[in-house]
Design a binder for these strands. Sequence first.
DNA 1: ATTTACATGTGGAACGTTCCAAATTGTTAA
DNA 2: TTAACAATTTGGAACGTTCCACATGTAAAT
Lengths: 337, 337
Amino acid sequence: MTISKNNKNITVFDVARQAGVSKSTVSLVLTESDKVSERSREKVLKAIDELGYVYNRDAAALRSRRSNLVGIVINDLTNPYSAQLAVGLERHIRAMDYMSVLVNSGEDFATQKQLVQKLKEYRLAALVICPAPGTDAAWVNQQIDAGIPVIHIMRDVAGARAPVVIPDNIRGTRLATQHLLNRGFKHIAFIGGSESISDFHERLCGFNQAVDGAGLNKQHITRIQAQTNRHGGRQAVIQALEADPLLQAVVCFNDVIAYGAIEQLRALGRVPGQDIAVVGFDDLEDSCRMSPALSTVHIDADEIGRAVCKLLGNKKDAVASEGRILVDVEFIPRSSG
Amino acid sequence: MTISKNNKNITVFDVARQAGVSKSTVSLVLTESDKVSERSREKVLKAIDELGYVYNRDAAALRSRRSNLVGIVINDLTNPYSAQLAVGLERHIRAMDYMSVLVNSGEDFATQKQLVQKLKEYRLAALVICPAPGTDAAWVNQQIDAGIPVIHIMRDVAGARAPVVIPDNIRGTRLATQHLLNRGFKHIAFIGGSESISDFHERLCGFNQAVDGAGLNKQHITRIQAQTNRHGGRQAVIQALEADPLLQAVVCFNDVIAYGAIEQLRALGRVPGQDIAVVGFDDLEDSCRMSPALSTVHIDADEIGRAVCKLLGNKKDAVASEGRILVDVEFIPRSSG
DNA sequence: ATTTACATGTGGAACGTTCCAAATTGTTAA
DNA sequence: TTAACAATTTGGAACGTTCCACATGTAAAT
């Protein structure tokens, strides 16, 4: 019924014949070389269009020993911030004429290892990783030594020879916390996050910097870790209130934690933003539209994408360029805190 | 400083020499053929390990004319359900030893076209698409004719010769609506969704089926379209209450709409789940943990993944197998409705 | 012993591109 | 007009695998 799939593919040779040039000239056009006359270029483009030729990346990658695939390993795609980040990254990477292979480690180092092992078989142009907890520097360096340019995002791996693009976490929570201190709150908690990842330490550090300088009673400062999801936020708020019933303000590890905290406060009959102030981190799309609108630290996912692409651009052949790109953050006060 | 990247790669030839067999035998091992003795297999595996050989997918794909890349085109990754779906799909696809290239169309048909054009250059094993609004059958069929096995998910494109995996939308909203009718509500609204996609029509159809059979006053049935995000949900609730101030229950196009609706009701001083019942569709991870816990229609993202993989398995060489796989849904009553 | 059958193993050719070095054409200066 | 040089074009080789047809070895059947 269907036309029996012709076994022969349309190749550069067919295009060349149709355009009346050599296969090499066709290749030059395809690779956007400037060593080709405008006249030939047009003939080739016309032939490509007429024949419906489609470029074969496999052959190109094989011969040129360079892929245009960029691997993106995300820690947890079901986290809205990660998803937002992934979308931003993907768009930028595509704009640079790379294609992104997006995979999800689910915060599991073993899965991450397996994934990267698979990805290596595609000779990636680069590997962008938001490292799962437990990622060790030795493993990362091993990948780099194997010739894969690795770029870390959002989280640092101490000792890894990979450049990292990371929001200014310390400044972010410091700003958020100072805002609460300025409003006169004396009983403050930092909730959420987990010890095994670097951003927790940084965000907590910013919190500590702010409260340490304020000369508050140590008893009135609470710190609670929790799973990074709504449920974690709810649990953490319960614990924080147990630790200090006079709690006035909560600095959350991120917006999702804040969402959980707000829900739990409400369930306990407290009015979030009024009885107890809540601030987040990430500035998810929903955060400005919810009620109360969430005060939070804004990270520009787009700027992270741009920074990654700048690194990608440098990656001509130099492997293992180090460096730390800090993406600026901004505290946005809204009605929740 | 760094060891100058050795220009020679480790290939099947190196492995063959190390193992004392021919390159062809190595290839047989790599492709997991059963035409190779256990003894040779072990020698080859040992050599691979010793040399740190990594398979070159580009070369393999070029020669065998078959890729193990599956393209996934998601309509909107920032939508939590889509993200959840993508994660499930990716995991299943990976389990079948395929690799997934995940891209995001952002609900834009032009973007979707560009993306697919790029993806074609990788000679995908299959293309899984959640079609953006405006996707027309002619375009889809053209891709299929070009030899790419297309599988649609979540949304139907009338006239396209592609199999589709879709939740039982009609049954879902019918069950949800019937639940509300059984509770005795007489003033009901369906809110959210947009005309340009098939699932809207199906979910609305389920709603209509249920209310039509109940012999209610037509004046007490409201239908409001809205953007598929929280904000859309909030707007829609406002409009629905304007249309029928005695509104008792709301059937939402999906959970995100329901989240917005609940927020807005609260902002208006109504207690969701008590003054006005709200039910959703999707059963996002958060839905069972929020308060009030959201009554909603559960779709198993995992089952969609499984169904897609079954289609993938069938795709030996048969292009354009049609068919419609309906994934079962379940109404889960919770406290919101 | 001789054939038959079957399970394994093998060396070339091929996949569709890019690279390279050399050839051809076009352009400017002497 | 020609030499010198730059711009453009080109055919063969190469990238690392799989396919194919055939060779070899081993066991069973004659």
